[in-house]
Nucleic acid binder design. Structure first.
Lengths: 184, 184
DNA sequence: TGAGGTGGGTTCATTCGGCGAACCGACCGC
DNA sequence: GCGGTCGGTTCGCCGAATGAACCCACCTCA
């Protein structure tokens, strides 16, 4: 019951039969690393958080985060380049711009929500948690893994990975210690 | 339908080590910022990813990530201090240690899974996605927001927030443009 | 007997990126 | 024509990240 979070470490084709030791030292990439290439920066994530909260203008970001102007300008530019945000003129004459989340950016919300909930759970020094609710009914949101077949949620311990071009059965780590695992 | 991801705002940086006695402005932190104080570093997140993949030893982390030794030592120490990992001697004589996820660390998996899926979806330059499955039945995992009351999943657009000490009704942003919003 | 390898670090010098301060320009209201 | 707002850029400093080198205890092999 190993939770494998990345793609093949070496090459996308097939980890085993292709000789990986030959040339490349660094594995080209995994999706988490690619994601971090875009939002893997403390400021960037906080900018995204603010964007979800409805902040859109340069100066509002700056004030809220107390971030240095050059850094903010740089991060916003990179986010726009990456396609996570769009820069949009909202008035002419004094040209003014706002930064909005694209659909790509919006889809980061599960990651941010997960982070927030983790922080609330394990790092709340006295701070009350932020409670997210299902807007239509008002009851508290849960976030989890869902199996459409079994029609049930499940915990991280029940995750296995299946790599596209390799053996379709689950990874298994014989040495894995369940004591550190899923539930407390 | 603003998705409010944070609690009270101000003070983004230096989550942990900030002097708490400085009884300054009211809300010292938000949970995302606190979480980033622990894992808000590119290397740290990659270390966590590797840990989920079953890597436990210093040198294996180092080789897999191609990270500088001092940085790895520093990050592992910080993760242990934060309670996300434990350092455990697995042999005496030449004393050797391994680093394992604690339950606190395990619970980061939703965030990492969300990140991975986002990366797979939006940043796959030709890389096939890693498919995660529900181990007992083998069908593909879905990750989403779940409402226990309505017994259904829902999208980020249906999230509202409720702050403990404030108005219990939902945040609403009149200026929000659905065009950039939830679904594509 | 030693040569070389492994695991888990630390120390040190250098480079890189974050930061605050200052500046800029187009507009506004007054 | 004075100060204020918005959205930046340039500049210089400094601390953090980095790679290289070193350390040490142990093991294998010859």
């Amino acid at each position: 019951m190993v939770v494998t979070l990345s793609g093949p470490t070496t090459e996308p084709t097939s980890a085993a039969d292709l000789d990986p030791a030959a040339g490349e030292v660094a594995p080209p990439d995994c999706s988490i690393a690619r994601a971090l290439g875009v939002i893997g920066d403390r400021w960037t994530i906080l900018i995204m958080r603010d964007a979800f909260r409805g902040i859109r203008r340069f100066d509002d970001f700056r004030r809220d985060l107390d971030i240095a102007r050059p850094v903010l300008a740089d991060r916003l530019r990179k986010l726009v380049d990456a396609g996570v945000m769009v820069k949009r003129r909202y008035q002419t004459h004094p040209e003014r711009f706002e930064y909005r989340l694209t659909p790509m950016g919006m889809e980061l919300s599960p990651a941010l929500v997960a982070l927030m909930r983790w922080g609330d759970r394990w790092l709340n020094d006295g701070h009350p948690p932020t409670i997210l609710v299902h807007e239509p009914c008002g009851s508290e949101l849960e976030q989890g893994f869902w199996c459409r077949t079994c029609q049930q949620t499940f915990s991280p311990g029940d995750i296995a990975s299946r790599h596209p071009h390799s053996d379709p059965h689950t990874d298994h780590d014989p040495d894995h210690d369940p004591a550190t695992g899923a539930t407390r």
